[in-house]
């Protein structure tokens, strides 16, 4: 009996800690993780052309080390989303789940 009561208490405390954290996550995700709207398209195009320009004109040689690290980390994060998508696509976490 006491074990069951302990379990209920554990679950309640788990919910109590998770709920506010989930709320903060949703609050930030709503702003920072939203899919781009169609109205954002011109800005995206603009940024891509800017990137191509910095690559062509050699302006990338003048980027500070701090900036470069930051940008490469962002690029890595964006690239890692591919693997998140792959895991969703193959519907298995580790490797491919092939029925033999």
């Amino acid at each position: 009996m006491s074990g069951a009561i302990k379990k209920v208490g554990l679950i309640n405390s788990f919910i109590a800690t998770v709920k506010p954290n989930l709320k903060t996550f949703v609050k930030y995700a709503k702003v920072e993780l939203t899919p781009p709207k169609l109205s954002d398209l011109p800005e995206i195009k603009n940024e891509i052309s800017k990137m191509i320009q910095t690559a062509q004109t050699g302006r990338w040689k003048n980027i500070t080390v701090k900036d470069a690290t930051l940008k490469s980390l962002i690029a890595l994060e964006v690239y890692m989303w591919f693997y998140v998508g792959e895991c969703i696509g193959k519907r298995h976490l580790i490797g491919y789940d092939i029925k033999l």
């Binding site: 993780l33 940024e47 591919f82 792959e86």
Partner: peptide, 20 residues
């Protein structure tokens, strides 16, 4: 967050789903 980064995230996610 810059729209390019968000665009990149979502396009890579969808690309990964189709690839997987």
């Amino acid at each position: 967050v810059s729209p390019l980064i968000r665009f990149g995230r979502w396009s890579f996610l969808l690309l990964g789903v189709t690839y997987g």
